[in-house]
Computed example of a mutant assay.
Amino acid sequence: MAAMLRERAAAPATEPLSTDEMIGLLVDREWTARENKRLHRLLKDARVPSDACMEDFSCEAGRGVDRSFARVLGSCQWVRAKQNVIVLGATGAGKSFLGGALAQAACRQGFRALVIRTPRLLQQLAVARADGTYANALARLAKVAVLVLDDFLLAPMTDVERRDLLEVLEDRYDRSSTVITSQIPTKSWHQAIGEASIADAICDRVVHNAHLVTLRGDSMRKKKAVAPEVTETKT
C-alpha cells in the first residue's frame, strides 16, 4: 500500500482522485498483491511444473479430450465435489502435463495441491516410517486438496508400499481429490497392484469416484524434439 502511495506521488500530475477513489484503488492494489503472493506460495508448495497449465493443454483431434471436457476439468468443480481424475495413456501422451495443469488450475482457485511421482512418494513414506515421522507425513498429505500421483504403477509395489498407498487414499476418500496418471489401464490395476484384498480397497477408493481421461495420439515429447541438423557432405 505504501508503494502505491509513492507511485501516485511520483506520477505526472493528473486529475486528482477523491478520497473514496483513492481508498478503493489502494484496497484493490493490496488485495491483488496478496492474492498474487498467495498463488505463488501455493504453486511453489505444489511443485507444479512451470509450463503446465490447462490453457496450453493440446485438445487436437484424436487426443481423447475435447475442449469442452478440458474446460470442465479446468473449472475444478470435481475438486469441490471431492472427486478424482484418472489420466491414462502411453509414454509421452501428456499425462504428467495434464496432471500438473490440473494442480495448477486448483492452485489458481485457492486449493492446496501437490504433484509427486508415486515411486518418490512411497520412498518418502518409507523414510518417514524409519525416522518416526510417518503419522505426520500422512497428516500433511491428507490436508492437500488435490494430490497428483504421477507414474502410478510404473514399477511393482512391495507389500509395505501397497499398505502405505492405501493409508494415503483412505485418508483422502470423500474428503479431497486425487489425480492419478498411469500407463496401465484401470482394468489391469488389480493385477498390477497385487494382493487382491488391498488392490480391491485401493481401487474402490479411487476408480468409482473418478473422471477417466484416456490420452491418445503420438508422443508429445517427440513432437517437441529438436530436429537433427543436416550437414552437407562435400564431394
Rank of each mutant, 00 (worst) to 15 (best):
D204S: 09
A10E: 14
M22V: 07
Y134K: 10
L73Q: 01
F97G: 02
L17F: 11
G62K: 03
F111N: 01
A3S: 13
E60T: 13
T178D: 04
A155D: 14
R129S: 14
F152T: 01
W78L: 03
W78M: 03
T181R: 02
G110C: 03
A201W: 05
T158M: 10
T235D: 10
K95F: 09
V148D: 02
D171R: 15
G99F: 02
A192R: 12
E55G: 06
L154V: 12
A10C: 09
A196V: 14
P156K: 05
A130C: 06
Q123K: 13
E21I: 05
M1L: 12
T158F: 08
L166C: 09
A3H: 13
L102F: 10
L125I: 10
S176W: 03
G24D: 06
S96Q: 05
E60F: 06
D218G: 15
S75F: 04
L26W: 05
V148P: 03
A106M: 02
A11F: 08
L17V: 13
C203M: 12
V146A: 01
E55I: 06
A155M: 13
A199R: 04
E30M: 10
R8V: 08
K224W: 07
V230C: 09
D150P: 06
D28F: 03
L153P: 07
R175E: 12
A135V: 14
D131M: 06
L88Q: 12
L39P: 00
L153G: 07
A137Y: 07
L212E: 15
L17R: 15
D200Y: 10
S176K: 05
M220E: 10
G64I: 08
Q109R: 15
A130I: 04
A2G: 06
L212R: 15
A90F: 06
Y173F: 15
Q183L: 11
R117E: 08
V48S: 01
L39D: 00
A199M: 11
A210E: 03
Q191W: 09
V72D: 11
P16H: 12
L5E: 11
L149Q: 04
A61D: 12
L39C: 00
M220W: 12
T133Q: 11
E7N: 14
V148S: 05
W31V: 01
A81V: 03
V115P: 02
L165E: 04
M4S: 07
A11K: 09
I198D: 08
R163H: 15
E195T: 11
T118R: 02
V160W: 11
L212Q: 15
S176N: 06
W78E: 00
R6K: 13
K95Q: 09
L5Y: 10
S177G: 11
V144C: 04
V179A: 03
G92C: 09
G100C: 08
Y134A: 08
R129W: 08
L166M: 07
G110Y: 00
R80F: 06
I86Q: 04
V160I: 10
R34W: 00
L215D: 08
R41A: 00
